[in-house]
Computed example of a mutant assay.
Amino acid sequence: MLNPILYYVKLSKENYLRYSKQIILENIGIEGQKRIKTAKILMIGAGGLSCPIMMYLTGCGVGYIGIVDLDKIEVSNLNRQILYNEEHVNKFKVQIAKIQLNKINKDCKIIPHQYKFTSLNSKELIKYYDIIIDTSDNFKTRNTINQICYELSKIYIYGAVDSFCGQMSIFNYKDGIKYNNLYSKYISEDKNCNTNGIIGVTTGYIGTLQAIETIKIITGCKQKLNNKIILCDLINTKTITQKIYSHRIKINKILINKQYIQKLESYTKNKQVVIDIRSNEEFLKRHVKKSINIPLKSFKTHKTLKFLRKYGNQNLICIYCNNIKRSLLISSLLTVNQIQHKLLKTNNKTI
């Protein structure tokens, strides 16, 4: 919960009328609405996740919303970035977002930061805001957000999407978990997550979750998501909440290529098991001797996790895939299930 001085915060007659439906809610009330009015939120990114978040936060009366983004609107954005339309193509997102959000609520102060978020400007930018909402699509930006939020004691609300799947969590809240408890600081900072297809329903769903958790923190609602992550599979209509532990199981990175096949094969000895998460077709073309093929989709089953827990007690699980994104997805799943493992990755497309 944020602790602004509310004595001097006044709600106008128009405010009482406009926000009457949420003021009568037990978890908000007049004091909660005053907290919303004084809140300062920073959006990192102005894309698919950001659009529903900004619209809902603006609509409920958040006082200040900063938006940092240097991108222009493209036609391919319009299927999910619902704040924009065809007339806005080739215009800067932050400028159009300001215009569109002011149409929703003219009292909300929209602050555009039309530049790229970097490690050089991050501290100067973040220090002015209460809550940082991450809608970025790369690990380098997320690691920077994580570091600066920790240094400045800022709450970090995280969201990520891929195809019909998404995840959402709250970091650095009441001395809770941090982003690096979910992903290693050193995992693929040069990787961009925005490589697969995406539908607007997925970004809308995860973005809405980020928005409601933001409002709950502002108003002081009891936070049940602290130290947990929400994992959503919308194509199969599944949503689970997993506990994350601050003392994260260490994931060792081993860069490998063709000349290291013998080293990889040695993992099958000395109580180490190599799990190849590629498809059956990829596995049959070429694989490490004695490795076990468990395709990505099979990790969704309880039997797979039960198997890995059983063998993980006596053997070190080594995950291999030539696609870093798939490796990171499985690594996250194993981490939240407290299954110790190593993440093996390659510089080449094939092993």
Rank of each mutant, 00 (worst) to 15 (best):
M1H: 14
L2P: 11
L6A: 02
Y8P: 08
S12E: 05
K13F: 13
N15A: 01
Q22V: 04
I23F: 12
I24P: 03
E26R: 13
I28A: 07
K34T: 03
T38S: 11
L42P: 13
A46M: 05
L49S: 12
P52C: 06
M54P: 12
L57N: 07
T58F: 01
T58E: 13
T58H: 10
G61D: 05
G61Y: 12
V62W: 01
V62H: 05
Y64S: 10
Y64G: 07
I65Q: 11
I67H: 05
N77K: 00
N79R: 00
N85Q: 00
N90P: 10
F92T: 04
L101P: 10
K103M: 13
N105E: 03
N105L: 03
T118H: 14
T118K: 15
S119W: 14
Y129S: 01
I132R: 13
D134E: 10
S136K: 00
S136A: 04
D137R: 14
R142I: 00
N146P: 11
E151H: 13
S153T: 02
S153Q: 04
A160H: 01
S163T: 08
F164I: 03
C165I: 01
C165L: 12
M168N: 15
G176Q: 13
I177D: 01
K178G: 10
Y179C: 05
N181S: 02
L182G: 14
K185V: 09
Y186M: 01
K191Q: 15
K191F: 15
T195Y: 04
T202P: 09
Y205Q: 00
G207A: 03
L209K: 03
Q210C: 00
A211Y: 00
I212P: 02
T214F: 06
I215D: 05
I218K: 14
K222M: 11
L225P: 00
N226Y: 07
K228F: 06
N236L: 09
K238P: 06
I251V: 15
K253L: 04
I254D: 06
L255D: 09
N257I: 08
Y260M: 02
Y260G: 11
L264C: 04
S266P: 00
Q272I: 08
Q272S: 01
V274P: 07
I275Y: 04
D276H: 04
E281C: 05
F283G: 00
R286A: 14
K289H: 10
K290R: 13
I292R: 14
N293T: 09
L296H: 04
F307M: 07
N313H: 01
L316M: 12
I319W: 07
Y320S: 01
N322V: 03
I324G: 03
K325F: 13
I330S: 02
L333M: 00
L334I: 10
T335A: 03
N337T: 05
Q340I: 15
N347L: 09
N348S: 12
K349T: 02
K349L: 08
I351L: 11
